[in-house]
Design a protein around this nucleic acid. Structure first.
Lengths: 335, 335
DNA sequence: CGCTATAATGTTCACGTTCACATGTTCACG
DNA sequence: CGTGAACATGTGAACGTGAACATTATAGCG
């Protein structure tokens, strides 16, 4: 069907090696300019495309990298589509193929457990422990993006700085009693949950404020309204920092139920500049991770890893997050 | 590195063909049970995994299918993550690898234009015309899921029935003047935009209602509030059917700006049961496509296509959508 | 016991590439 | 004009697999 270098060679009455040399443009081996042009033209004419299976067989590598994500892409952490864009933007120009592995799906048939070969991997979402163990044991180079695994290179959000940005914004508006609405238990294992919470506590303490008990909640669907009531009405918090946009929307619903208005009765700020933070009423002030940039850096990190012969020590890149001010934050009511 | 059938053969002092036969479990060629067991055990011991590059080279096929999606996965049409889950659930058990192609990204380096080979493709989002032409010309079998391309097999939503479901729900609640909030121009080329709009007009006409001008809007950010004012206040519509959850959220914001309450002043229903329709106030009644099921049927459709020798005529599967009643729809105010 | 059918296994080649190595060709310089 | 260096190309093997074809072992049967 598709033309091979053999076909081109036969057509031009030269050896397939010469064709290969021209098409791979190897330096070090001189080729007559006339031959080069003839080969290139014929290749174009015949619609030649290299057979990557053959190439993979010859070399030990596949030029494919696997991305371990979740089938809930886009629903968790909120920045996965942008991460993918970034990863693609780093890898496609280098002619790497991207194999999308859904780590939470049918483990027994997952790429890592079957025979799919890849040169390296990017982990967006921790796969099940067994998959991860296999991946590590296989010696496959891999890096994490927006995910933390002990001893691995990773591209992460600078959560400490992000929390500080959010709290500074509120502080400058005049807020002093600021509550934190933590993630739902669904997300508890993610590094950002721990880091945002710790940073919240640390930053508040720096400001001389010890977050009162009850300011720090892990909401679940049952009692979020009660918790918000406690935070705002009983403990006089004037602002809430939410773990992410999903939690923020739940806080908004709770506020509505309690008859509290945002930002008149309290300000609300959260992480992730994700739909629908800009379409709800009021629109939400957010601290936004640079998803695409993170993906790109992750891709580059992996390529470095693949192309450097000696194993380098794992590095963690922290990318800053950006404040986007909208309607949900305002100076607190004078009481 | 990895064990090959040769390694196993050498270890057992048999020929690699026998090993191959055992591992492929070919019918028609008898194999001694004792040999079979020895091979299987050794394969397990040595951690054998077939080299798919070699296999692809030997056969003409790669056992890989490409999914053409958008880098905006999850943001468009709303059901892409579920579609992916469905596709994976159909293909992974059959040991097909999934190559994720971002059709809107760097066309020159996209899989279809480079040398990546795949046995077939699933189109979730129409790639650029040139990519599509190349795909069609290459003779690659492909099917569409939640996307329509002339002359191709596709799994689509039954939009006519979905619109009818939505309108019937409103009709039974007592609504007679029902407006339609169409998609933003960003999505205009998608089949669902045309079909939902046409079905809306047709169903209303069946009910003996000619949708008044202005009921049928293509909102953009500038004038949506004006349009909603016209629809609800000037033309006395008591309900709005929105193209999707994104449009619905814009309608909600407009309502808020106009001081209109949902569902007291008008009811709102939309397509897609997608975050945050269940977390906003009020929670939204929706008509939800069965994303995972669609993906699964798409995968099956493609497998049929791959494994049937003679070309079959394209078939279109229409899957029903389901009504999920929440707070945003209620009987109209008695006036 | 010898013959044949079938069971069980082996030999060899091809898939498309690239690479190490070999060969032929041109040119400059003594 | 001869000679070596560079230039330019060719030969053949190998990557791991599976299929066609060939071969040997086994068993059944008269």
């Amino acid at each position: 069907m598709a033309a091979t270098i053999m076909d081109i060679a036969r057509r031009l009455n030269i050896s397939h090696t010469t064709v290969s040399r021209v098409l791979n443009n190897k330096s070090g081996v001189p080729i007559a300019e006339k031959t080069r042009q003839r080969v290139l033209n014929t290749a174009r004419e015949m619609g030649y495309a290299p057979n990557l299976a053959a190439r993979s067989l010859r070399h030990a590598s596949t030029h494919v990298i696997a991305v371990f994500g979740s089938s809930y892409v886009g629903m968790w952490g909120g920045i996965t589509p942008e991460l993918m864009r970034g990863i693609v933007s780093a890898l496609q120009p280098r002619h790497y193929g991207i194999f999308y592995a859904m780590s939470d799906f049918g483990e027994q048939n997952a790429p890592s457990n079957s025979s799919w070969r890849f040169d390296g991997a990017i982990v967006l979402q921790s796969p099940p422990a067994s998959t991860l163990r296999r991946l590590a044991k296989s010696g496959q180079p891999f890096v994490c993006v927006n995910e933390h695994i002990e001893g691995r290179s990773a591209v992460l959000c600078d959560e400490a700085a992000g929390v500080r940005t959010a709290l500074d914004h509120l502080w400058k508006l005049g807020h002093r009693r600021i509550a934190y609405a933590n993630a739902t238990h669904r997300h508890l294992q993610h590094y950002s949950v721990v880091e945002r919470h710790d940073s919240y506590c640390a930053t508040m303490r720096e400001h001389g404020v010890t977050p009162p008990a009850g300011h720090d909640v892990i909401p679940n669907e049952d009692n979020l309204t009660d918790r918000v009531r406690t935070m705002i009405l009983d403990q006089d918090a004037t602002a809430i920092l939410a773990y992410d946009h999903v939690v923020a929307l739940r806080v908004m619903a709770a506020a509505h139920q309690l008859g509290l208005r945002i930002p008149q009765d309290f300000s609300l700020i959260c992480f992730n500049d994700e739909f629908p933070v800009a379409e709800v009423v009021p629109t939400l002030t957010v601290v936004a991770p640079q998803g695409e940039r993170m993906g790109q850096r992750g891709g580059e990190l992996l390529l470095d890893l693949l192309e450097s012969p000696e194993p380098s020590s794992p590095s963690t890149i922290r990318l800053p997050e950006q404040l986007v001010v909208r309607e949900s934050t305002a100076p607190p009511k004078r009481s």
